[in-house]
Design a protein around this nucleic acid. Structure first.
Length: 479
RNA sequence: GAGGGUGUAGCUCAGUCGGUAGAGCAACGGACUUUUAAUCCGUAGGUCUUGGGUUCAAGUCCCAACACCCUCACCA
């Protein structure tokens, strides 16, 4: 590093690059390949290019060196001859280590063995990497280091950068799908006075000036519904929510969720929207409906199956879901404690145990027991059934949607009646008088949808752990 | 929170029965103008996660702590 400063005009601490050509860009290799096929690969006179990237491989051959540089579009080989770049530049080149970022001017050509390369005329030292990079062949393997030093994982990990760029494409596609249907994106508060809209333990914090207890939001629901009251007829928020729960391959304490509300819609319109959002996201990634998943595949070919909660219950649990006594005895047979619990709570415990893992999907599970859905409108002809669906894929809950309850009196009643067998933490029913007041001013009938973005990205990028789709998952403080 | 696993050089990993700490890559020095993770010769690099204990002797056995991974529970 200190020696570098002896080289005139090249200070790696202040290196600058302008107008660099992307290694794998449309106007780069693609154009060159076209050019090469037009002229025949034996024509060795190529276009002049300028590129910049990190040195990831380096082979020396006396007065000749090969270096592979990498930018976020890909890798390309540099062919660097001592004569071709001159003595002074050659001296500079010999200061370059793996991990450094260099620029190059040269001619794009094929080597004798047909490798597309930049035949350098000038090397520019742009940035010195003082730390040593990971091993060039095995890369960074330790999962702890890959998460703590994500910058190294992104540069050197196979498929890591494309996976996170695909996450961005998926999110962008979702926004496009919604924009095309007239939905507007808003930004609600993340600090809540009541942690409502879902059943989860919140992170608790405090505002000093107001001397007020605050909760990090666990859901987006109740503020978006307030906006529906205010006349924002198609509205959504895509953002982070926080739940003070365990960490697992499917759970991170902060995760990304989208909630969408459509006035004059219902859970069926949300089902169509959900399917469209996912299919468009798949389209954005290349449009293949059969996506790899571990050793198998997921078949996203539309339309996704739509099955009622009760049908699936009967099929997988082997018990009539309407026969509360039979359901209870099955629950006890499994080993659940049923004492003092509401029949629907028991039924749902059995559902989660017997049915959810079997839902390879994609499958929309529709029509849930009303009593476990305090924010959902009941079916007109059957108040025991709520107009709710959940989308399951590979046993994971990906989406959850309702025909939204907009009756303030019923909402108030459901907020205040805790279902037997559910602790306050387990219940979505948390009294929110301010929200009830909003409903009293009239919320249009509506469909509402929530989608776990991280899990959707997992499924579309063949990632078995949520940490592979979150850039900086929560970890304990390192040294 | 419970159970199991892992922790050795910058990175990827060996380390047998408890007996002086190893390799490859990277780094450094040298040779080589068409190479493809791996050319050849040489040099340097370690508080074996941390703290105790057993032992003549501990990377190795025991205990505890810390971090990460897996399974389960909670949750999406």
């Amino acid at each position: 590093m200190p020696e570098l400063e002896k080289v005139e005009g090249e200070d790696p601490k202040t290196g600058r690059a302008t107008s660099t050509w992307m290694v794998n860009s449309a106007d780069g290799q693609v154009a060159f390949r076209q050019w090469a096929s037009d002229h025949g690969v034996t024509d060795f006179s190529g276009p002049t290019v300028r590129a910049a990237g990190r040195v990831v491989l380096h082979r020396t051959k006396g007065k000749l060196q090969f270096a592979d540089i990498r930018d976020w579009t890909g890798d390309i080989q540099l062919f660097i001859g001592r004569q071709q770049i001159g003595e002074e530049n050659w001296e500079l080149l010999n200061q370059v280590d793996l991990g450094d970022i260099i620029g190059v001017d040269g001619e794009l050509r094929l080597t004798k063995v047909g490798e597309l390369s930049i035949f350098a005329t000038k090397i520019h030292f742009l940035t010195k990497s003082i730390e040593q990079p990971p091993e060039k062949f095995h890369g960074l393997n330790d999962p702890e280091l890959r998460q703590r030093m994500r910058y190294l994982d992104l540069t050197y990990g196979d498929g890591v950068l494309p996976r996170f760029l695909n996450r961005t494409k998926i999110v962008h596609s979702i926004r496009s799908t919604l924009a095309a249907q007239g939905f507007v994106e808003i930004e609600g508060p993340t600090l809540h006075t009541i942690a409502g809209g879902a059943a989860a333990r919140p992170f608790i914090t405090h505002h000093n000036t107001l001397d007020m207890k605050l909760y990090m939001r666990i859901a987006l629901e109740l503020h978006l519904k307030r906006l529906m009251v205010g006349g924002m007829e198609r509205v959504y928020e895509l953002g982070r929510v926080y739940r003070n729960e365990g960490i697992s391959p499917k759970h991170n304490p902060e995760f990304t969720m989208i909630e969408v509300y459509q006035a004059f819609g219902d859970y069926r319109t949300m089902m169509d929207l959900t399917e469209q959002m996912i299919l468009n996201a798949i389209e954005a990634l290349g449009g293949e409906y059969q996506l790899p998943w571990g050793d198998g595949q997921i078949d996203f070919t539309p339309p996704f199956a739509r099955r009622t909660y009760n049908d699936l219950f009967a099929e997988h649990a082997g018990v009539d879901p309407l026969d509360a006594a039979a359901v209870k005895s099955l629950a006890e047979q499994i080993g659940f404690d049923t004492a003092g619990k509401h029949p629907d709570v028991i039924k749902n415990e059995v559902f989660e145990e017997k049915v959810e893992d079997a839902l390879v999907g994609p499958v929309f599970v529709i029509d849930y027991p009303a009593s476990i859905c305090p924010l959902t409108k009941r079916k007109q002809d059957n108040p025991e059934v709520a107009e709710r669906f959940e989308l399951f894929i590979q046993g994971m809950e990906i989406a959850n949607a309702y025909t939204e309850l907009n009756d303030p009196d019923l909402q108030e009643e459901l907020f205040s009646s805790q279902l037997a067998g559910l602790s306050e933490e387990d219940s979505m029913a948390k009294m929110d008088h301010d929200f009830i007041r909003a409903l009293r001013h009239g919320m249009p009938p509506a469909g509402g949808l929530g989608v776990g973005i991280d899990r959707l990205v997992m499924l579309l990028t063949n990632s078995q752990t949520i940490r592979d789709v979150i850039l900086f998952p929560l970890m304990r403080e390192g040294q």
